[in-house]
């Protein structure tokens, strides 16, 4: 009995040390020089710009990944025109970004689309900068977060099976109608879950974005790379301030996810 208590206690200690203490440290650190310096840190032009960049990336990446993630999940689970082997191959490729380090993902984009490459030079010529600009950062974040939506939606689709959709088609419903009336209500909470995770992941993405962006202040700097730079410059209060905003967002997302989970269980 006492050994069991010891283990329970230990679990709480590890949990606290790993998750709670850093969170408190960030909060305290942000306020250590008073509320004014916290507000100042956030209202610096580079802070506002970095938060805006992060915001744009999150919105664009989440929108694209939701659309194509759901579509790929549908094709991988339901598509009859894909052979079994191709499906299995695609299915394992989907997980690639999870397996590859984000830094390497970013590097691949630089090597493919950097200004010294054929494709990169072509885009630069028509006035569209990819690497060391917003498109590259979005691309890098897309790469890193791509598996999330597919992996959330696929099991749900497999679980509900195709019979409800077939039943709808027997009653004269064409695919678009069937998707919205029959499939969507079943996968809805899986998609919400995927959106929350994608937002959280793209909010916090660091490695891939750092490599692709070049981390140029007021141009290609995101919230996470700004925190990194503030820490490098020993501007700990400012780093804590931006970090606190990111952390608050993440906690909010987690709460949203819990709510979605509960709704999922009800239905």
């Amino acid at each position: 009995m006492s050994i069991r208590r010891l283990w329970i206690g230990l679990t709480y200690v590890v949990f606290g040390l790993l998750l709670i203490v850093p969170l408190i440290q960030i909060a305290v650190g942000a306020w250590s020089d008073g509320a004014q310096s916290f507000v100042d840190a956030l209202l610096r032009p580079q802070s506002l710009h970095a938060l805006m960049m992060t915001g744009i990336i999150v919105v664009v990446v989440t929108a694209i990944n939701t659309l194509f993630g759901v579509m790929l999940a549908l094709y991988l689970v339901r598509g009859t025109w894909l052979g079994g082997k191709i499906k299995r191959l695609l299915n394992s490729i989907v997980d690639l970004p999870f397996a590859v380090s984000p830094v390497i993902g970013g590097l691949m984009i630089v090597l493919l689309l950097g200004p010294n490459t054929i494709i990169g030079a072509f885009f630069e010529d028509i006035g569209f900068k990819v690497v060391y600009a917003l498109p590259g950062m979005i691309l890098a974040t897309l790469f890193v977060t791509f598996p999330i939506m597919v992996r959330e939606v696929m099991p749900v689709l497999q679980e509900i099976g195709s019979q409800q959709e077939e039943a709808a088609s027997m009653m004269g419903a064409y695919p678009w109608y069937t998707f919205w009336m029959v499939t969507w209500p079943s996968i809805r909470f899986g998609v919400i879950y995927g959106v929350v995770l994608t937002v959280a992941r793209s909010l916090g993405e660091f490695g891939a974005v750092l490599v692709v962006s070049g981390n140029i202040m007021n141009k290609t700097q995101t919230a996470t790379t700004l925190v990194y730079q503030d820490v490098e410059n020993f501007n700990v209060v400012a780093a804590n301030g931006v970090a606190l905003v990111l952390a608050a967002f993440s906690v909010g997302l987690l709460l949203l996810m819990e709510w979605a989970k509960k709704r999922k269980e009800v239905h």
Partner: peptide
Amino acid sequence: LPPQERGIGFVFQNYALFKH
């Protein structure tokens, strides 16, 4: 002819009712 246009009613083994 696609299933939508065949005018057939189909009862599935597990009924496949729309659960929502």
